[in-house]
């Protein structure tokens, strides 16, 4: 049995929109294991993104317990959560969310810069990561000069550069064509196996299901099925 990296129990999250209360997560319980690539699938509005936001400490929740690497994130304050996230979690977003003013290498280096690592170390690690995702020679190119696939590769490099144990990918292939999507997924799979990290991928794209170790189906804020 692999070690549990993330564990959520009875997570409830509601949003108040005026007088209406929206129950986004209705008692989610889920474990994520070491070295696992778990996919979270389901229709729009079923709570996938809300769940990964909660799981990564980006969104507070109403009740339940959520532990990452054994740490209870619901007991952490904002500063502790931010520091924890910076050390342990990598993010890949659907819209890439690269900083348009920074070059590819500067974007990759962001988690290291935020952690105030030494400049020489930052440059070496970021450069190696860019090479690992196949973007050698594009170090000084700004996001506007990169294709969608290349931008997502930069985002992946950025998510992995600080060796996080847990990676969250929100629709990593939805902005890409099929071929680029395949490349990105192969890359993600390869890198997490090499680095021994765990990954949750939120997706609508059934063409990439084949990369998953487990697929969790959600609907109306609940897990309705877990498939291997």
């Amino acid at each position: 049995m692999s070690k549990i990296i993330a564990s959520c129990k009875d997570i409830i999250k509601t949003f108040n929109s005026g007088e209406a209360e929206v129950k986004a997560l209705q008692g989610i319980t889920l474990d994520v294991y070491e070295n696992e690539l778990l996919m979270l699938v389901g229709p729009s509005g079923c709570g996938k993104t809300t769940f990964v936001s909660v799981l990564s400490g980006l969104l507070s929740f109403n009740s339940g317990v959520c532990k990452l690497m054994g740490e209870n994130i619901s007991a952490m304050n904002d500063d502790e959560l931010t520091t924890f996230r910076g050390k342990n979690i990598g993010f890949v977003f659907q819209a890439f969310n690269l900083l348009p003013s920074l070059s590819a290498i500067e974007n990759v280096a962001l988690p290291l810069t935020v952690a105030s690592r030494k400049r020489a170390e930052i440059l070496t690690l970021a450069s190696e990561m860019l090479e690992a995702v196949g973007l050698s020679g594009k170090e000084d190119v700004k996001p506007s000069g990169l294709s969608g696939g290349e931008q997502q590769k930069v985002a992946i490099a950025r998510a992995l550069v600080h060796n996080p144990k847990f990676i969250i990918c929100d629709e990593p292939t939805s902005s890409l064509d099929h071929k680029s999507g395949e490349i990105v997924m192969e890359l993600l799979q390869k890198i997490i196996k090499e680095k021994g990290a765990s990954m949750i991928v939120v997706t609508h794209d059934n063409r990439i299901y084949k990369y998953a170790d487990r697929i969790v189906h959600m609907e109306d804020g609940k897990i309705i099925k877990v498939a291997s």
């Binding site: 500063d79 931010t82 996230r85 050390k87 962001l110 935020v114």
Partner: peptide, 10 residues
């Protein structure tokens, strides 16, 4: 928000 998600402190 991206920077904060990556661990940038207040």
């Amino acid at each position: 928000a991206v920077l904060k998600a990556m661990g940038a402190s207040a």
